[in-house]
Write a protein that binds this DNA or RNA. Structure first.
Length: 577
DNA sequence: GCCGTTTTCGGCCCGACTGTTTTCAGTCG
């Protein structure tokens, strides 16, 4: 069975970690990490790249890595990994997950105390055995123990939706401290990653110490981790870490860029500066010792000969090259979205009536609403049988006659059954304005079967949109095994739009694959998957995923007007005959 | 392990903070 890009990347990542723990040349480890990243974001099947003999042409793949990755994808094994991991217990790599534990400490703990797992580390810390080790002490030991505890409780990552409200509150407080000139969110939260590890805030202020002092005295702090002259760090309820950095006003633009990341984007940018004979760091852009001033990020990018790169794109996935060539897409904005898609009513598992939904959508500035309740197979959600479908159609017809400034489309979230058949016959499916198909059961099929199942459903001309294409639940459930590129190709072929489900725990399709889909020629639809009033709040997350996937408003169905969307749907219907 | 006309050896981003030290190592971003 061929390996996925992600699996190949995981092996390379593992090699890097083991090399670090063994104390090998850190740059060798970095070469493996960088190769892992490249494979993960290849946008092409690594098996194909290897088969075509093109791996060696990718930057970062020299003779050794090309040979090793070729061996891995053709045989499923890498002898080198077996060699370097022989004698090392499996749990050792898990130790790296503990905050303040890096490869050197893993090596130390293993060699001096025989610690092979997080459990053993915790035991040793509780027994006070870590403190006596060279370079360690009581405080380091306590810190590691606290880190293990925190890790246990929260697995160290948070949904964007959990972190955003807290980030906005703390940001507003910090921005309001006397003497603060400018402030910005940074890090993964500014880049709108689907999950975040901590919250970064950057500040320019006359009196840095006062900012840190005010920050570490805020409400809701569980404990303060660090409070220096220019940097403060604290854990807020319910366990989210917030870092504040204060910089000089003249460094603000460079610092904002630096602390927004991603790390990979920054490394690439620094290299670019170096190529020009300059130096870029968090303090500024320099020609020798002479600063090349930039008042904001836009000016900083301009100095580098680039267009402004929106934070969501800063993942080192080609945005730097595109900005240099002035070829970045004009990304979609939340305000561009005019239709509320994938909305459940209280006819199935939603909590609002059609009338309430219409009022909510209107108050939020939408001009049309796509009602998509569950089909009958999703019995736990009180899925609609045909008779209830027809009753809902009648109700929508009545409502549409009465509503002003908002129209309702008759839609359905039709279940894709195990064999790829849809949950209703074509006759009733043809009666909907718009059909959204989705998998809700049998998640554990082999990848080939799941792929065939979904592609069969897509080939039914009644299907207009594929909802939550991988079924993942962030921090809870992995995506089901599926060849997503094959699914996206089928969407492009059949002109079926791909949903970006905006539920904070889904954000499915993943932005990395949104990019892939865009390149394959797919259209997209931001689906709220709304069941309650508050779910309308998450449209911005869906748009953020679209932006991270490089989408312009022309790529997104709900950026059309109701009339344009209607035309798009009838165009599909004409072609299906 | 990768890379490349200032190259085939010697770099590879680098600074803040903490805790341990008494001048520095490890981690993190």
């Amino acid at each position: 069975m061929p390996m996925t890009n992600r699996e190949v990347a995981a092996v390379l990542e593992r090699v890097g970690q083991i090399l670090e723990i063994r104390g090998e040349n850190p740059f060798k480890a970095r070469a493996y990490y960088s190769a892992a990243r490249t494979i993960e974001s290849l946008g092409e099947d690594v098996n194909k790249v290897v088969a075509d003999g093109e791996l060696g042409q990718i930057p970062g793949f020299g003779e050794a890595l090309t040979a090793k990755v070729t061996e891995l994808v053709t045989t499923g094994r890498m002898k080198y990994l077996d060699e370097i991991s022989s004698g090392l217990p499996d749990g050792l790599l898990g130790l790296l997950e503990v905050p303040d534990v890096g490869p050197k400490k893993v090596k130390l703990f293993y060699e001096k105390l025989g610690i092979k797992s997080v459990e053993e580390l915790e035991e040793a810390a509780r027994a006070g055995r870590l403190a006596d080790l060279p370079g360690m002490g009581e405080k380091s030991q306590a810190k590691i123990l606290a880190g293990i505890q925190q890790r246990k409780e929260h697995k160290g990552r948070w949904l964007l939706s959990e972190a955003l409200p807290l980030a906005k509150r703390i940001f507003a407080e910090v921005e309001g401290v006397k003497g603060v000139r400018r402030a910005s969110l940074g890090g993964s939260i500014r880049r709108m990653r689907e999950t975040i590890g901590d919250i970064d805030i950057l500040v320019s202020a006359a009196d840095p110490a006062a900012v840190i002092q005010a920050f570490t005295a805020l409400d809701g702090i569980e404990r303060v981790l660090a409070a220096g002259d220019t940097k403060g760090s604290a854990v807020f309820k319910p366990g989210i870490q917030v870092d504040v950095r204060v910089v000089e006003e003249e460094s603000y633009a460079a610092a904002q860029h630096y602390f927004t990341g991603s790390k990979e984007h920054n490394v690439h940018m620094r290299q670019l500066a170096k190529d020009r004979g300059w130096k870029l760091n968090e303090y500024g852009l320099f020609d020798g010792d002479a600063p090349l001033p930039a008042k904001d990020e836009k000016a900083l990018f301009a100095r580098m000969g680039m267009d402004f790169v929106p934070p969501e794109l800063r993942e080192d996935r080609g945005e730097i090259e595109a900005a240099l060539a002035h070829g970045l897409p004009a990304l979609a904005e939340e305000d561009d979205v005019r239709g509320a898609f994938h909305i459940h009513s209280n006819a199935t598992d939603g909590s609002m009536t059609l009338e309430q939904l219409a009022a909510e959508a209107k108050s939020r500035g939408y001009s049309y609403l796509v009602i998509s309740d569950h089909s009958r197979a999703v019995a736990v959600a009180n899925g609609l049988d045909e008779e209830r479908v027809r009753r809902q159609w009648a109700e929508i017809k009545k409502l549409n006659a009465k509503l002003k400034g908002l129209s309702i489309f008759r839609s359905i979230e039709v279940d894709i059954r195990k064999d790829g058949a849809l949950d209703y016959g074509d006759e009733i499916l043809r009666g909907f304005d718009c059909c959204i198909a989705a998998v809700h059961s049998s998640f554990t099929m082999p990848s080939a079967d799941m792929t065939a199942r979904i592609i069969k459903a897509l080939s039914n001309p009644c299907v207009d949109i594929l909802a939550h294409p991988t079924g993942r639940l962030l921090l809870e459930r992995e995506p089901y095994a599926v060849d997503i590129e094959a699914v996206l190709s089928a969407c492009a072929k059949h002109n079926v739009a791909v949903e970006i489900n905006a539920q904070p725990s889904r954000l499915d399709l993943d932005w990395r694959f949104v990019r892939t889909g865009r390149e394959l020629g797919c259209r997209f639809a931001v689906g709220l998957d709304a069941h309650h009033k508050e779910d309308f709040d998450w449209a911005g997350l869906g748009v953020a995923v679209a932006r991270k996937g490089w989408l312009a408003k022309g790529d997104i169905l709900n950026c059309m007007s109701a009339a344009q969307f209607k035309r798009w749907l009838s165009g599909r219907r004409r072609r299906r005959r």
